[in-house]
Design a protein around this nucleic acid. Structure first.
Length: 567
RNA sequence: CGGGGCGUAGCGCAGCCUGGUAGCGCACCUGCCUUGGGCGCAGGGGGUCGUUGGUUCAAAUCCGACCGCCCCGACCA
C-alpha cells in the first residue's frame, strides 16, 4: 500500500488524557481514537494488528480442534436467569429492553449461549468431545474504564468452550488450551507468565491466568525466584517470614495494659517496643450479613478472596464502626478475640503455634499481652493471608516476589456449573443420561496488542514483533521527488509483495525526518531506505528494534527482509 | 459510588485570580525553497471558550446546576 493514500493520523505530542504508555502510543501512532470512556474506535493500523493477533489465535485454536462459530451478542434474559448469573453479574452487565418490554443484555461472556446450543443439539456421548470457539465483541459496564485498551467497556475476546464426557476429557481440553495459549503468546512476541488463578464468579475447580509483567497492569502475581511457583495473589500460598522476635516462653495468662491513643498495629508496636509480628490483627468482617472475627499476624494482610472462599460466602465486607461498637463494646484499634462468643473466630495459619502475643482488649485504649491462640480463645484456622514479598514457597526454599501484571488470557475448568443448571444431558454408552463437563477459555485480543506495546517500545514509539505489526516492512525513498529513488523504491516494494511480505511504500512528499519518525512511531519492524547509496546500487535495511542497518543490493533488499523475518 | 484534576481551533497549552478586541506552538491550506531524522521563508483558513441558568451595561473570566474526560480508591468472569 502507498502511504500517501492511507489514513494514518500520527500525532507529534501525547494526548493529555493518556497516562499509560500503550495508550499514549496507540493514540499517537494513529491506531485508535476514543469515542467515549472505555469505548474506542480501531482505525486502520489497529485493525491490521488486531487481525494479525486474531490470525495467530485462529491458527492455534484450529490446531487443537477448535471449531469457530459466531454467536449472538444480544441475549435474552432467560438463559442468564437459568444459570443464575442474571443477578450475579449485577451492574457490570449492560441490560436493555426490547419493544415488547422483554429483558435483554449484551453478552459479557458466552457460557450460557454455548450451553444453550449444546443442550439443543447434543444427544449422545458419540458427539463428544466438542470444542467450540468464537472471536467476538464482549460488553461489560466497567465501573472505571482505564488505561487505553486495557480496561474497556467493549472489547474483542476469543472465547472457547469444551464439552467432555468426563474429567479426563476436560483435563485434556484444558491442557490443550494451556499449550495453545503458550504458542499464541510466544508467537505474538510476548514474555508471559502462566499462573495459578482464582476461579471467581466463573465457578470451577482449576484455573490459570496468562499474565504479562507491566506497570500498567492491575493484577499482582507471586513468583518464586526460580519460577517454579507462579500464582495470582488472590490465590497464592506461602510460608510466611519468621516473626521478628521470639514469642515469650511459658504458660502465661492474658494481662491487660493501657495503650492510650494507640490504635494501629504500627502505633502499638512503637509503644510496646515489640515488632508488628508479635501482634494479632483483628478484623471484623460481615459475610452474607453475619459477623466473623478474622485474625492475622500484625504485619499480614487479609485476602478477601480467600476469606470468601473459606466461608463459602456470596458477599463479604468490613463491618461498619457502629456494628463494631455494638458487638465488641470497643472501637477498631482495641479489638481482640479473647472473650468473644457472639461470632465465629477465624485465624490465619500463621498464628497457629504462636504464644503470648499482643491483641486488643475489647476496651478502648487497652491491649492484652500474653495471649495464646487456642488456649486463651477458641478459633478455627485457615489460610486467609495475602502473600507478601519475601515470603517463602510452601515446599521449597525459594523466596517469592510480587509482580504487577496484565491479564491477557484465562482458562477455567468449569465443571458442571452450566451444564447442570441449564440442563445439558447426553446419553452414555449404557443409555443413561449424564451431564457433560465443561471448560471455558478466554483471550483478550486488544490486551495482547496493548501488552506487546507495553513490553516493546522506546522513546520513539512502538517496536512491535513482525507477527503482529500492522506492516512487516516499509520502503522509504528519502526523496520521493527523485524519480530514480521512487522507481527503485517501487520496485523493491513490488518485490516484497511478490515474496509475501506485508509491505508499505512511503511515497509521501515529506521530508525524510518525518517519514523516519512516523515509521518508528507506528513500529514497523523493518525499513528499507532508498537514498544516497542508490547510485552505487545499494539501499539500507534497518531493524526498528535494534536500530542496526545493513547495506544491501537493490535487487536483494526484499529477499533480505524476508529472510530476516521468516528465516 | 467516594476523593482529586481537567474541559479554550485537529493536538499540546496560555488567557480566568483583577470582567471589556480570544492568543501561542504544532498540525492544516497556497506559493517559493529544501530533501538521510518531525527543514526554512511568506501569506492564509479554522474557535457556540463543555452545556445551561444567574450576576452585570458587558462573562472564556464571577456564582449555581448539569454533562463529559482523566487519575486514585471502591468494584471487577
Amino acid at each position: 500500500m502507498r502511504w500517501s493514500k492511507l489514513f494514518i493520523p500520527t500525532l507529534r505530542e501525547n494526548p493529555a488524557e493518556a497516562e499509560v504508555v500503550s495508550h499514549q502510543l496507540l493514540l499517537r501512532a494513529g491506531y485508535i481514537r476514543q469515542l467515549s470512556a472505555g469505548l474506542y474506535n480501531y482505525l486502520f493500523l489497529a485493525q491490521r494488528s488486531l487481525n494479525k493477533v486474531i490470525g495467530i489465535v485462529r491458527e492455534e485454536m484450529d490446531a487443537i480442534g477448535g471449531q469457530e462459530m459466531l454467536l449472538a451478542a444480544l441475549h435474552p434474559a432467560e438463559i442468564w436467569q437459568e444459570s443464575g448469573r442474571w443477578d450475579v453479574m449485577g451492574q457490570n452487565m449492560f441490560r436493555l429492553k426490547d419493544r415488547f418490554d422483554r429483558d435483554l443484555c449484551l453478552g459479557m461472556t458466552h457460557e450460557e449461549v454455548m450451553t444453550f446450543i449444546a443442550r439443543g443439539e447434543l444427544r449422545s456421548y458419540k458427539q463428544l468431545p466438542q470444542l467450540w470457539y468464537q472471536i467476538q465483541t464482549k460488553f461489560r459496564d466497567e465501573p472505571r474504564p482505564k488505561s487505553g485498551l486495557l480496561r474497556v467497556r467493549q472489547f474483542l475476546m476469543k472465547d472457547s468452550y469444551s464439552f467432555d464426557m468426563d474429567a479426563a476429557g476436560l483435563d485434556l481440553a484444558y491442557q490443550n488450551h494451556y499449550d495453545a495459549y503458550c504458542r499464541i503468546f510466544s508467537r505474538a512476541g510476548l514474555q508471559y507468565l502462566a499462573v495459578e488463578a482464582h476461579s471467581g464468579a466463573m465457578g470451577g475447580s482449576q484455573s490459570h491466568e496468562f499474565m504479562v509483567a507491566s506497570e500498567a497492569g492491575e493484577d499482582f502475581v507471586a513468583v518464586s525466584a526460580d519460577g517454579s511457583y507462579q500464582a495470582n495473589l488472590e490465590k497464592a500460598v506461602s510460608r510466611p517470614t519468621l516473626p521478628l522476635a521470639p514469642d515469650p516462653e511459658g504458660d502465661r495468662a492474658p494481662e491487660k495494659f493501657p495503650t492510650p491513643g494507640r490504635k494501629t498495629i504500627a502505633e502499638v508496636a512503637a509503644f510496646t517496643g515489640l515488632p508488628e509480628t508479635a501482634q494479632i490483627k483483628s478484623l471484623v468482617m460481615v459475610a452474607d450479613g453475619k459477623p466473623v472475627l478474622v485474625l492475622l499476624r500484625g504485619d499480614h494482610q487479609l485476602s478477601e478472596t480467600k476469606l470468601v472462599t473459606v466461608l463459602g460466602a456470596a458477599d463479604v465486607r468490613p463491618a461498619h464502626p457502629a456494628e463494631i461498637r455494638e458487638w465488641f463494646g470497643a472501637d477498631a484499634g482495641s479489638l481482640g478475640p479473647v472473650g468473644i462468643t457472639n461470632m465465629p473466630v477465624l485465624a490465619d495459619l500463621a498464628l497457629r503455634g504462636r504464644r503470648n502475643m499482643i491483641c486488643g482488649a475489647n476496651e478502648d485504649d487497652y491491649h492484652l499481652r500474653h495471649v495464646t491462640p487456642e488456649e486463651d480463645f477458641a478459633c478455627a484456622f485457615a489460610d486467609l493471608r495475602q502473600v507478601a514479598a519475601g515470603d517463602w514457597c510452601l515446599d521449597s526454599d525459594q523466596p517469592l516476589e510480587i509482580r504487577k501484571t496484565i491479564e491477557i488470557g484465562h482458562i477455567f475448568k468449569l465443571g458442571y456449573k452450566y451444564s447442570e443448571s441449564m440442563g445439558l444431558r447426553v446419553l452414555n454408552a449404557e443409555g443413561h443420561e449424564v451431564t457433560p463437563i465443561m471448560g471455558s477459555y478466554g483471550i483478550g485480543i486488544e490486551r495482547v496488542l496493548s501488552a506487546a506495546v507495553e513490553q516493546h517500545h522506546d522513546k520513539d514509539g512502538m517496536m512491535l514483533p513482525p507477527s503482529i505489526a500492522p506492516f512487516e516492512v516499509v520502503v522509504t525513498p528519502v526523496n520521493a521527488a527523485e524519480p530514480a529513488q521512487l522507481s527503485a523504491a517501487e520496485a523493491i516494494y513490488r518485490r516484497c509483495r511478490e515474496l509475501g511480505l506485508d509491505a508499505l511504500l512511503d511515497d509521501r512528499d515529506e521530508r525524510p525526518g518525518v517519514k523516519f519518525k512516523d515509521a518508528d512511531l507506528i513500529g514497523i519492524p523493518y525499513r528499507v531506505t532508498v537514498g544516497k547509496k542508490l547510485p552505487q546500487g545499494m539501499v539500507e535495511v534497518t531493524e526498528r528494534r535494534t536500530r542496526q542497518s545493513v547495506d544491501v543490493l537493490v535487487a536483494d533488499a526484499a529477499a533480505h527482509v524476508r529472510g530476516r523475518i521468516h528465516g
